[in-house]
């Protein structure tokens, strides 16, 4: 089963769960299922056109992948997907 690692900022919307397991076989289907399970995540991940927000990065393992191609990105049994926000800090 593939896993989405849930970043700290989203955990408030995922009952503090740190990961989401999915049997979907593409990245886009996995994200869709993730949003269906936790609807408050949607506004955080998707822009008004339903695309992944331009500044959010997606990684498969340690490799960054283009959100625009997520429909064609296949997930394997042990794939780990990371959703990475900007770093909060600072002023």
């Amino acid at each position: 089963m593939a896993r989405i690692i849930i970043p700290t900022p989203l955990r408030k919307y995922t009952d503090q769960n740190r990961q989401f397991e999915t049997q979907q076989d593409t990245l886009s289907a996995a994200i869709e299922q993730f949003i269906e399970k936790y609807p408050d995540v949607k506004q955080n991940l998707l822009d008004d056109n339903g695309n992944i927000r331009s500044y959010i990065k997606l990684y498969i393992g340690n490799e960054e992948v283009s959100p625009a191609e997520n429909g064609s990105i296949e997930l394997k049994e042990d794939t780990e997907v990371s959703i990475v926000p900007a770093i909060a800090g600072g002023c």
Binding site: P7, T8, P9, L10, R11, K12, Y13, Q43, N44, L45, R53, S54, Y55, I56, I83, P85, A86, I87, A88, G89, G90, C91
Partner: peptide, 16 residues
């Protein structure tokens, strides 16, 4: 405005 923002250095106080 949201938790998953791109403003490095800023904090979304509701979730951080």
């Amino acid at each position: 405005d949201i938790a998953m923002h791109g403003l490095e250095g800023w904090k979304h106080l509701e979730t951080a």
